[in-house]
Amino acid sequence: MSADRVTGADPADLYAVLKGFEGRPAAVAGVGKDPVNEPMIRHWCEAMGDTGAAYRGPGAIAPPTMLQAWTMGGLSGHTGRSQAYDELLALLDGAGYTSVVATDCEQEYERDLRPGDRITFDAVIESVSARKTTTLGTGYFVTTRTDVRAQGEPAGTHRFRILKYAPAARRGGDDRAKRPRPVVNRDNAGFWDGVAEHKLLIQRCAGCGTLRFPWLPGCGRCGAQEWDPVEVSGAGTVFSYVVMHRPVFPAFDPPYAVALIELAEGVRMVGNVVGVPYGEVRIGMPVRAEFVRVDGEWELPVFRPADGGRGGRG
């Protein structure tokens, strides 16, 4: 079934065609554009605020969660990429599922990656879900699995899942689509419990005292699994930011600023900057956390300029 024949197709017929893509390659004999290298490891650790000793100095390894980074093709893509994945997305576009959002990923690790390792990989379209209705709209979850090798040895597996969907239509009046809800699990439930009480909570390792965010089950510095919640002041500065224009989600009014905030306690947190035009957000701008009620149901932390929008650098 070609893309020009799927518009208005019966969902069962479309799903049967989509299922036919399962098991087809998305990339064959892909080659990482750069070997594992210290500058990229350093940039990653700085961006993530990860000060783990294992990622510095002689004998350093790459953070395991960088697994996908070494396979990225950049704007020019990879020569090993197959046509199957593009054909699958084109079919969904033709059926009206024109928007896409990354939803989650899963990784498994088999060996440490060290500077100098050459990365090769193969990717396969692992699964296409039945049609699902979500807050964003109705569509299909598509999962690809990438098997990564270092120096020819198995290094890990990366599963990446997207939702290809038709955006939910806005209804009339002031009744807007609801914001997507955060994923709350056993590792981060304490953070959201604190937000509900207008408290900004991070974790403090009971082993070495390191403060950390986001919430994790173990310490990245010493490996200890015991920790205490710590309420922070909410004061911080804009470490970096982006202005979102696309894609347009029904519950959002672009353009708007999303920032990486460096809190006074040293950890970093992502959040919207409110109370100032998006074009006036600046790196170094002092901000302070506050809490807003979303959809009349749940609380969300945001950041407002602490000095009325002055300060920072362009």
Rank of each mutant, 00 (worst) to 15 (best):
R204H: 05
I202Q: 05
R204D: 05
I261N: 10
A235N: 08
W215K: 05
L200I: 04
G209R: 14
G279S: 11
L216C: 13
E262K: 15
R282C: 01
C222M: 10
A264W: 10
R288S: 15
P250L: 06
E299Y: 14
N272L: 06
G207W: 13
V292R: 15
R204C: 05
R212Y: 04
P229D: 11
A289D: 03
V287A: 02
N272K: 13
A224S: 10
E280W: 03
G279K: 01
V248Q: 13
A259Q: 01
L263N: 05
G209I: 12
E231L: 03
D295L: 05
D228G: 01
G218R: 12
R268A: 05
L211Y: 10
C208M: 14
V270H: 14
D295R: 06
G218V: 15
V248W: 09
E280C: 04
P214Q: 09
E290M: 11
F249K: 04
I261T: 02
V242T: 13
L260G: 11
E297M: 07
H245S: 08
M285P: 03
R221V: 15
C205Q: 12
L260H: 13
D228M: 03
G218E: 15
L200N: 08
E226A: 09
A257M: 01
E231R: 14
E265T: 15
V273M: 12
D228P: 06
P247T: 07
P255A: 00
V292T: 12
V276A: 07
P286N: 03
V302S: 09
G236F: 06
V287H: 07
D253Y: 01
V243R: 00
A289Y: 06
L201D: 03
F239I: 12
I261A: 07
L300I: 07
S240N: 11
W298N: 06
A289S: 12
V267F: 09
A289W: 08
P301E: 00
S233E: 02
A206F: 03
E299D: 13
V238C: 09
W227R: 10
A206L: 04
C219K: 12
R246F: 14
R282Q: 01
P229L: 04
P301T: 07
